[in-house]
Measured scan of single mutants.
Amino acid sequence: PKDQAKKEIEKALRNGDEEKAKRLAKKYGISDDDWKELKKRVS
C-alpha cells in the first residue's frame, strides 16, 4: 500500500538517507507531487 511506502520513505528522509528514500519512491511508484509533499513534511 502507498501509505506504508510513504511511511518508509519519510523514515528514510528523517534519517537523512535520501538515496534510500529515492530508491523506495521509485520502487513504489511515488509521484513527484507525493515526493515533494514528503520532503516538505520532513524538512
Results as ranks from 00 to 15, higher is better:
residue 4 Q to E: 12
residue 41 R to P: 03
residue 14 R to F: 05
residue 17 D to G: 02
residue 40 K to G: 07
residue 7 K to T: 09
residue 10 E to Y: 15
residue 12 A to Y: 09
residue 11 K to A: 15
residue 9 I to W: 01
residue 38 L to G: 01
residue 40 K to F: 11
residue 40 K to C: 15
residue 37 E to A: 09
residue 19 E to D: 11
residue 10 E to P: 00
residue 14 R to H: 05
residue 21 A to D: 00
residue 7 K to Q: 12
residue 33 D to A: 12
residue 31 S to Q: 04
residue 1 P to Y: 10
residue 20 K to Q: 12
residue 30 I to F: 09
residue 30 I to M: 12
residue 41 R to Y: 06
residue 35 W to F: 15
residue 22 K to I: 12
residue 3 D to K: 08
residue 37 E to G: 04
residue 31 S to C: 04
residue 23 R to E: 11
residue 7 K to G: 07
residue 38 L to D: 01
residue 11 K to H: 13
residue 8 E to I: 08
residue 8 E to W: 11
residue 19 E to G: 08
residue 42 V to I: 12
residue 23 R to T: 11
residue 32 D to R: 06
residue 33 D to K: 08
residue 27 K to H: 09
residue 41 R to I: 13
residue 37 E to L: 07
residue 11 K to I: 12
residue 36 K to A: 14
residue 29 G to V: 03
residue 32 D to A: 09
residue 32 D to Q: 08
residue 10 E to C: 07
residue 27 K to I: 12
residue 21 A to G: 03
residue 36 K to N: 14
residue 30 I to C: 04
residue 10 E to M: 15
residue 30 I to D: 00
residue 38 L to C: 05
residue 9 I to Q: 00
residue 3 D to Q: 10
residue 11 K to W: 10
residue 1 P to L: 14
residue 35 W to H: 01
residue 38 L to T: 02
residue 35 W to L: 14
residue 40 K to R: 15
residue 35 W to C: 03
residue 40 K to L: 10
residue 26 K to Y: 08
residue 17 D to P: 02
residue 30 I to V: 06
residue 38 L to E: 01
residue 24 L to K: 01
residue 21 A to C: 01
residue 36 K to Y: 13
residue 5 A to E: 11
residue 31 S to M: 03
residue 6 K to G: 05
residue 8 E to T: 04
residue 41 R to A: 14
residue 23 R to A: 14
residue 7 K to R: 12
residue 7 K to W: 14
residue 15 N to W: 07
residue 36 K to W: 15
residue 39 K to H: 06
residue 41 R to M: 14
residue 20 K to G: 13
residue 39 K to T: 06
residue 20 K to V: 08
residue 34 D to C: 11
residue 13 L to K: 00
residue 17 D to C: 08
residue 43 S to M: 15
residue 1 P to G: 12
residue 10 E to T: 08
residue 17 D to L: 08
residue 27 K to F: 14
residue 2 K to D: 13
residue 2 K to E: 11
residue 28 Y to V: 03
residue 43 S to K: 10
residue 5 A to G: 09
residue 18 E to K: 05
residue 37 E to R: 07
residue 13 L to R: 01
residue 8 E to M: 12
residue 39 K to R: 09
residue 2 K to N: 15
residue 40 K to M: 09
residue 34 D to N: 03
residue 17 D to Y: 11
residue 34 D to L: 05
residue 25 A to K: 11
residue 40 K to H: 15
residue 19 E to T: 09
residue 29 G to R: 07
residue 2 K to V: 13
residue 32 D to Y: 12
residue 41 R to L: 15
residue 10 E to Q: 05
residue 25 A to D: 00
residue 32 D to V: 07
residue 5 A to C: 07
residue 28 Y to C: 03
residue 29 G to L: 06
residue 36 K to T: 11
residue 20 K to W: 13
residue 38 L to Q: 01
residue 18 E to F: 11
residue 15 N to T: 09
residue 19 E to H: 08
residue 33 D to H: 09
residue 5 A to F: 12
residue 17 D to S: 04
residue 22 K to E: 07
residue 24 L to D: 01
residue 6 K to W: 15
residue 28 Y to R: 02
residue 36 K to C: 15
residue 27 K to S: 06
residue 10 E to R: 05
residue 11 K to D: 14
residue 18 E to L: 11
residue 1 P to I: 12
residue 32 D to F: 12
residue 8 E to G: 03
residue 8 E to D: 07
residue 6 K to I: 15
residue 2 K to Q: 14
residue 32 D to K: 07
residue 21 A to H: 00
residue 9 I to G: 00
residue 34 D to S: 03
residue 16 G to L: 04
residue 16 G to P: 01
residue 4 Q to N: 10
residue 25 A to T: 02
residue 11 K to T: 13
residue 3 D to S: 10
residue 22 K to V: 10
residue 12 A to M: 10
residue 8 E to H: 06
residue 29 G to Y: 04
residue 33 D to C: 05
residue 32 D to S: 07
residue 3 D to W: 13
residue 41 R to K: 15
residue 15 N to C: 13
residue 5 A to T: 04
residue 15 N to G: 10
residue 37 E to Y: 06
residue 9 I to A: 02
residue 22 K to T: 06
residue 5 A to D: 06
residue 37 E to M: 07
residue 33 D to Q: 10
residue 42 V to D: 02
residue 18 E to T: 08
residue 1 P to H: 12
residue 8 E to Q: 09
residue 18 E to N: 07
residue 13 L to H: 00
residue 12 A to W: 10
residue 18 E to V: 10
residue 41 R to H: 09
residue 6 K to T: 12
residue 17 D to F: 13
residue 33 D to N: 08
residue 21 A to V: 02
residue 24 L to V: 03
residue 9 I to Y: 01
residue 22 K to L: 15
residue 34 D to Y: 04
residue 15 N to F: 07
residue 16 G to W: 03
residue 14 R to V: 05
residue 33 D to L: 07
residue 20 K to Y: 15
residue 29 G to F: 05
